[in-house]
Each structure stands twice: as C-alpha cells, then as structure tokens.
Amino acid sequence: MGLHHVGHVVGDMEGAARLYRRLGFTVAPPAYPVLPGVEQPFGVANAHVYLADGFVELVAVLDGVPGEARPIPLRVPEDRLPGLVAAIRAASAAIAGFLERFQGLHIVIADTSDLDAVAARLTADGVGHSGVHAIQRPVETATGTAMEPARYLEISGPLPEGRIGFAENGPDSAALPVEHANGATGLLECVLCVADQEADQEGDREADQAASQGGDQGGEQRAGREVGAVRRRYDGWAGVRIVPASALPGLLPGERPPALPAFVAYAVSVRDLAATERFLSGNGVPIGKTGSGEIFVPAEAALGTAIIFRQES
C-alpha cells in the first residue's frame, strides 16, 4: 500500500503552478468543480502533477470565479445533489482552515486495490471514517481530459494534520504518461512530524533496524510506530514516515515543523538524481541534502513543504 496522492494547499494557485514548473514539474491546467443548479463556483480549485505512480495536487480556496481555471462539471443524481453540495462546502471550509494554520501539505490519500476491505478494517479497529464514496476524477488522455471512476473514503475528523483517507482507482485507465523536466517518476512517501512525547522511540529503533536489514517491513513499521490516536490512523501505511520533532533536523537539516502534528515533506523518485540536481541548480532553486545524502528543496522555497528527490531503484 503506497500513496495515491498528496495535496499541497497554497494561497495562490497561479504562483504555485509557476513555482512547480520552475522545479521541473509538468503542471496540468487548474480546474474547479461545478454542479447543476449552482450558479456560482464554490469550493476549491486544484491542479495536478501526474506521476507514473501517484500525483501531487495543488489546492487553493476559490475566491469568486477563478481566472485561468477550467470548470469540471460533476454529474450526480438529483437526489444526491444536496449531499454533494454540503460535502464540497465542508471540504472547502476545512481546506481554508488548513491554509490559516499554514501553507503546505495537508492532504494525504493512500492507494488501495480493495477499498471495501480497508473500510471494514478501519471499522473493526474503531477508526471512524466517511464510508465509501464513488466519484470521477479528471485525467489527461490522448483525446483530452476525461473523467474516470474512482472510489474513496476519508478518516473522520477534524484532524489537525489535514484530510486523510484511502482511494481506489478504476481497473483500466486511459491516462497518458507525463514527462517532467526534473526527471520525476513517482510519488514515494510523505513525512509526518509529531511531538516527541507522542513517538514510540523503541518502535523507531526496531523499524530502523528492520529497514537496515532490507525488505519492505521497515516502511510499514515506521508507519505504525505512533501511540494513541495518531498510530491508529496510520497503522500499516507504508507511504507515511512518522518522525518525532527532535529527529527532523537529522532527516531534513534546517527544517522546522510549522505546527505539531504536521506533514512537513514529501518525496518523489527521479530517473537520474545528479541530473535533477543540475536542473534545479540551473534554475536557481535552493537545494539541501538530507541526512542520507538525498537532495531536497527546503520548505521555505517550496511554499511550506520540503520536496525530497530520491534516485529511483
């Protein structure tokens, strides 16, 4: 189980798209949902950075009619329209609250091939969730933008770190592969920073030891090494690395969490790390080195979230 996508909440969509293009990402045109019978656009606008595995979503709260953003009509049975309107308004209010907390990463959705089984496991573990919803998501195809079926659920909130959930794509996708100037190929993980007193240090040591011995167990153990409510939310998530605040400087030198808990970074794979570093340096992008020697763009230079670039295996 990896990441389906992460959401970077920003104050200025056009400025965020320019920054991501400077970082070497290909950014799809921004879009916003419209519903039948609702005259004014509402909710949020988003723009996607599609990767071979997962995607990054840029999200901005709408303020009136967006400039270059395109409308995406949502088709929904008439009897379900009021519920969808309420859900979008609630999501918009939540995202506005995230932005007030800080600009940065606030949405993390795990990928799964069996959403019903995930829902059943969460229920059995006493973790509240929204239930399974069927939606359509925009993808870029050979004939233009198409809407493809997807299913998702969200863990019940409000949660201080953001919107957390699981998604299941349809079995067949016509989405085209997207090339990125920085060589990015996939979404690997995100970093959740928590207060030291919430971290299970013994679990950290066991997970790091397992990781050093090879295999995939280390990531899964790291994802479940929190105690209490945070651990219950992320137990079994191989795409989330949980780091106590005191350990963050060792992972990302110079970085400080804007709040606790908070998602402070995400990582993407690249075809050639040296080429990516040359590209970023050539564009005047500040670069740091992680504790393990990877490169990252500091949060201060990337609208509140550090972006780690890792050589693909």
Rank of each mutant, 00 (worst) to 15 (best):
A259V: 15
Q217C: 03
R232F: 06
V230D: 01
S269M: 04
R256N: 14
A265T: 07
R232A: 15
R256H: 15
R233Q: 11
A229Y: 08
R225E: 11
L260T: 08
G250M: 01
S212H: 06
P249K: 00
V270H: 07
L251W: 03
V227H: 10
L252T: 01
A262Y: 13
D235G: 03
P261Y: 11
A238F: 01
D216K: 09
P253I: 00
R231Q: 15
E226S: 13
V230Y: 08
Q213A: 14
G250Y: 02
V240R: 06
R271H: 14
V240H: 08
E255M: 05
D235Q: 13
V240S: 05
I242F: 11
L251R: 11
G214W: 04
A223D: 01
R232N: 12
A211E: 15
A238N: 03
R231F: 05
G219K: 07
D216R: 10
P253A: 00
S212K: 10
P261I: 10
R241F: 11
S269I: 06
A229F: 09
P253G: 01
R233H: 13
A210M: 12
A262N: 12
A259Y: 12
G215F: 08
I242L: 15
R241Q: 13
V230H: 04
V227S: 11
L248Q: 00
L251Q: 06
A259F: 12
R271D: 14
S246Y: 12
G239D: 02
P258E: 10
G239Q: 04
R225W: 15
R271C: 10
P258D: 09
S269P: 03
Q217V: 13
G224A: 02
S246A: 14
I242N: 06
S246E: 13
G214C: 05
A267L: 00
A265S: 12
S212R: 14
V268R: 01
W237R: 12
R222H: 14
R233L: 14
Y234H: 15
P261L: 09
G236C: 04
R231I: 01
A223V: 02
R271Q: 14
R232G: 11
A267K: 02
A265D: 05
A262T: 11
A262S: 15
V227N: 08
A229W: 11
F263C: 07
R231E: 13
V270N: 06
E220H: 03
Q217F: 07
V270Y: 07
V243K: 05
E220L: 08
P244M: 09
A210C: 08
A262P: 04
A223S: 14
Q213C: 10
P258M: 10
V240M: 06
R233D: 04
L260E: 08
V264T: 14
A265L: 06
S212W: 04
P244C: 09
Y234P: 12
D235T: 08
P253N: 02
A245T: 12
V240E: 07
Q213T: 07
G228W: 04
A267G: 01
G214E: 06
G254W: 03
P244R: 09
A247S: 10
R232P: 08
Q221H: 06
R233Y: 06
A210R: 14
V264S: 03
G224E: 05
A229H: 13
P253T: 00
F263I: 08
L248D: 00
V243H: 04
A267Q: 02
A267N: 00
G239C: 05
